[in-house]
């Protein structure tokens, strides 16, 4: 199910970088696929973010 507009608005208003906002949305989308499932996808997404933003993390 799509993430609600309210949550999307709050993510956009967060005081974080654009990439971090994309990460937040990606994480929620994985959580939405199944609560407490798809753990490997969660981990992979976080590791990928760190890999792609080595200079800022």
């Amino acid at each position: 199910m799509p993430i609600s507009e309210k949550i999307l608005d709050h993510i956009n208003d967060s005081k974080v970088s654009k990439e971090e906002k994309e990460l937040m949305l990606g994480i929620l989308q994985i959580e939405d696929k199944g609560s407490f499932r798809y753990q490997s996808e969660y981990e992979a997404m976080i590791k990928k973010f760190i890999e792609e933003h080595k200079e800022t993390t």
Binding site: I3, S4, I27, L28, E31, D32, S35, F36
Partner: peptide, 14 residues
């Protein structure tokens, strides 16, 4: 319905 549970679950997992 408002997906607060979704946020809550994400917080618990994180």
């Amino acid at each position: 319905i408002s997906q607060i549970t979704l946020l809550d679950n994400a917080c618990s997992r994180l």
